[in-house]
Amino acid sequence: MITLSFFTDLFTESFMQRAFLAGIMLGVLAPLIGSIVIIRRLSFIADTLGHFSLVGISLSLFLSYSLGNEIFADKPLFLGIFFSVVGGLLIEIFRRYYKSYKEISMPIVMSLGTAVSAMFFSLSKKTGSLYNYLFGSILTVTDYYIVVIAVTMVVVILLYLLFFRQIISVSFEEGNAKFLGINLNFFQLVFIIVLSVVVSILLEAAGVLLISSMMIIPVAAAMKVGWSFRSTTIISILFSELSVFLGLWGAYSFNIPSGATIVSVNILILIIIAFAKRARLAAAKKRSKQDALPDSRQSL
């Protein structure tokens, strides 16, 4: 049942406040990076990186529960970020290796990540926590996680503002980079590293299987209503925030993984936009037909 205690808890329970804060920040980060992922046609990279960052998570569990090393015990995100970046670099290496079949790099890195994570999860005998990492559990995030997201958000937004011109022009047209004095390889490298970090941060909220949806679907919906790059970005952030908020509510009310609820709302928005757009187009067509009617009579 959709419960209204969601709202009272939002103001009183610290776990809810953490979830809310994390959600708000991720709601900005995900579409901001997602739009560039879409323009550069890198959607599969986000998925692949998610799977690879799971290696870091499972390794943290393995280290602490099988070997008794406590450093990463309740902070699996650090190794998660590290491995996501490693995954990103591996993809880049394979992309440069298979120049005309760049997407081969994805299944290779993805399967490697999945296989290794499965091993560490089993060895650590913590397969139960796998569920949270697959589908997301924003309601259980801890303080250190909030700090990591906040730092990432500040860095990403700074990079975005400082290099907006370069990011957008290279994303829309790689070939033009040279004439703007931009080093394409370096740009790609930095972008992959930033993407890797953002993906592993989204892991906690969205889960491995739904990370890319959280980045991409709000942008996909916004693209259909935006009239400029700026408006599309703003609309995608609004959609994203709406889905995080409603998703959080759903996760709280039904005790469902947050990734599932957030992405379901995202998809719902996408469907509504698609139908609204079709209805508008149909109405416009009808109107122009009616307008044209007297003219066609005259010409008879």
């Binding site: 739009s35 879409i38 323009i39 907006f164 011109r165 957008i168 022009s169 994303s171 829309f172 047209e173 790689e174 070939g175 033009n176 703007l180 004095g181 693209m223 935006g226 009239w227 400029s228 790059f229 700026r230 408006s231 599309t232």
Partner: peptide, 25 residues
Amino acid sequence: VPQKFDDFNYEFPITVSEILSVSKL
């Protein structure tokens, strides 16, 4: 100015003014 602009991503919304502002040195 190339003969063809196949390299450019057209589907994502961006205005003429935005294109010019991001690609000026």
